[in-house]
Design a protein around this nucleic acid. Structure first.
Lengths: 142, 142
DNA sequence: CGAAACCCTGTAGCCACTACAAGGTCAAAC
DNA sequence: GTTTGACCTTGTAGTGGCTACAGGGTTTCG
């Protein structure tokens, strides 16, 4: 299987496959006489694993670690569990911060209806006003 | 005001201030005889505005546009409103996709309790299994 | 035989910083 | 008066996960 077929089957760009090889996520495959990469089904399986982890938004460094761990069948899988839990915690934290953000933006959005001029725009007023309160509070004016 | 004081008051790194200048978000200030940047209070105000927009996670290109628009007091503020609405929509979409992700990761996390070995790890099993289903569906096996 | 589709390497760009290197300037402490 | 230390300057490179391009070689089909 050449790189184009592999990439197509995994639903990724050819460049991405080469990138994963450079980053050590995909083993360097054999080469044909003319230097083309020749992949085995095992490569496709591994690439699909990587893509599935990426679809869960795991950083490549963690995917790499999971691949290493999955090779050592005998050892404890505690580290696998810890990786997934830590990633879940990150995603939860990010989701919560986006919820806050969403509330702030919705409030901002409600500050101005269309038809105003810039000088009267409630949104800009709010952005400028809010910015004032955010300066460094190290030396507050008593 | 020199760059350190400005940066401190706005709660940003000195490098970030210079970066904003390079990117055209902050006007280049006057210089002292020895080449130090000398800022006015107007610069601090503008920097605070930028930081507030960034705290709402707006891309710098949009912050720049908001700054341009806020200078043209007479024109309609429809574009301001549209920018904020579009950004809100992006944040909402991102939040929803993180909610999906969170559910998937929570389900994954439930696949394995600690104490297993890698060979029996439900999480890895699930990751590998799920990856199989994700290959390209262009040529399905009848 | 020639065109199109594939492959190769290497490099640069995206975003919003952050960090470092290698130097110049200034105030105060000794 | 000099030396320390905190500040400032420019320029460059790194982060993550790709994506795009330049400038070539190979294979395949009609």
């Amino acid at each position: 299987m050449r790189i184009g077929e592999l990439a197509h089957k995994a639903g990724v760009d050819v460049q991405t496959v080469r990138y994963y090889e450079r980053e050590g996520l995909l083993e360097a495959p054999a080469r044909t006489g003319s230097g083309y990469r020749a992949y085995s089904p095992a490569h496709l399986e591994r690439l699909n694993f990587v893509r599935h982890c990426r679809s869960l938004d795991m950083p490549l460094a963690e995917v790499k670690r999971l691949l290493e761990l999955s090779g050592e069948k005998g050892i404890s899988c505690d580290e696998v569990n810890a990786l997934v839990r830590a990633h879940l915690a990150r995603v939860q934290a990010k989701r919560k911060s986006l919820e806050d953000l969403e509330r702030k933006l919705a409030a901002l959005n409600a500050q101005c209806e269309s038809g105003h001029r810039v000088a009267d725009c409630g949104i800009l007023e709010e952005l400028i006003h809010a910015a004032h309160g955010e300066a460094c509070a190290c030396h507050p004016a008593h």
